[in-house]
Write a protein that binds this DNA or RNA. Structure first.
Lengths: 217, 217
DNA sequence: TATATAAGTTAGAGTAATCTAACTATTAAA
DNA sequence: TTTAATAGTTAGATTACTCTAACTTATATA
């Protein structure tokens, strides 16, 4: 049985390594992601290694072992199903779901997870456009780019966001952006790291950094 | 902000004092109810007193102060709403809901509680027949007896159970009993502390102790 | 009203997760 | 190839909750 905290560390490792082509993560990176000090992460890493959930040695990189990956995928599945529930059934907005799902993802009941999945009609994606892992622990990673990688003059369709925080999502909404919206890149100022885009006829200027947090196809 | 544990102590105190006519509870009683040692309860009681949630002094009885009662009612409201959700929407059986609701009752989101209430159609009772506190913290205690108090030859209607544990509820189901069932008391053996009852034409013999856990009107 | 029993408390220790401050190892650049 | 910057670790302390063992207070009855 894993603690609430251990589940969070494993989920964080999964999300850090889910980023394309990555296999391993570092202690500081993990600590920053979870909002704890590196010393705290080191202590927990020793414990997770003891439980054979991760591969890790002093001053080395961290990778998930199969058992750790499985647990992390279960938590991620619950997180994304609960987000869908809140959005679809509880009238929550896009930017409100993440925080509450962070709590709900730790509820222990495989029966509940599967009934919830059924109740929601076996959704494949959560409200942020991210794929929901299956009960068997499969996660289909669809190939996608970020808005920052789109050439000037090209168009693309927004499929997901990288950042799930409320402030970020509120800004996305303010720009008139949303999942499945068509975005055209009008111009790029490399000097100033700015991007001019058009969505539903509405023109906006966003930073390169912002554009890296919008996933498109 | 209350911890998960503090919430559990307050809820336990509410449930112990909810029993008709009671206002106060004892340390050992509370500890037994929560499955901790008396020494542990003493430590927590000091903390809850410090936070002005309870009235309590060394070797004295414990009572909830208004703020403590309010918090406890909020947790109880969430517990009973989630039980209703699991039973009505997630296809859980009577004996499965309590355990998972014990976890769900600690989710912090007033928006979620109220949306859930709406989603369920503002239910007044949970699947065990217990009243659900309102958002304003009102709990209507309907006057009720236990099956053990019914005279021989009299009939009554089951409205709730005192014990929400799975083994107890499974036995209730096995006897053909359920909320709103009419129960007739056929005979009583005071010597042996046994009760002969009839439900839907099915006759059973149950202990006095069992009958004290069935609420009827 | 003395005293045995039940109820409740204190002291001291353990575990889980966190921190700060000081230290060590790795790496990348000069 | 030395060294400065970055990354990571250790030691020691803190907080929250729990325990056991020994002790104290309240109570109930003989």
């Amino acid at each position: 049985m894993l603690s609430y905290t251990e589940e969070n560390y494993l989920k964080a490792l999964l999300q850090l390594t889910l980023e394309e082509g990555r296999e391993e993560a570092g202690t500081n990176e993990l600590a920053a992601y979870l909002g704890v000090k590196p010393a705290t992460a080191t202590a927990m890493l020793k414990k997770l290694r003891e439980k054979e959930l991760i591969e890790y040695e002093r001053y080395g990189k961290i990778t998930l072992r199969p058992a750790g990956r499985k647990s992390a995928l279960e938590v991620l599945r619950k997180h994304r199903l609960w987000e869908t529930f809140l959005y679809e059934k509880m009238e929550f907005t896009w930017d409100e779901v993440h925080e509450v799902a962070e709590q709900l993802e730790h509820i222990q009941s495989s029966k509940l997870v599967n009934k919830l999945d059924k109740f929601l009609g076996y959704p494949k994606f959560d409200p942020h456009g991210d794929p929901i892992p299956t009960a068997e622990g499969e996660l289909k990673a669809i190939p996608r780019k970020t808005l920052s990688q789109i050439e000037v003059g090209e168009s693309c369709v927004m499929v997901a966001v990288r950042d799930n925080s409320a402030p970020f999502l509120q800004y996305v909404v303010q720009l008139g952006l949303g999942i499945n919206n068509k975005i055209k890149v009008l111009a790029r100022q490399p000097y100033d790291a700015q991007l001019e885009i058009e969505v539903n006829g509405q023109k906006s200027t966003v930073s390169q950094k912002f554009a890296e947090n919008i996933f498109v196809v």
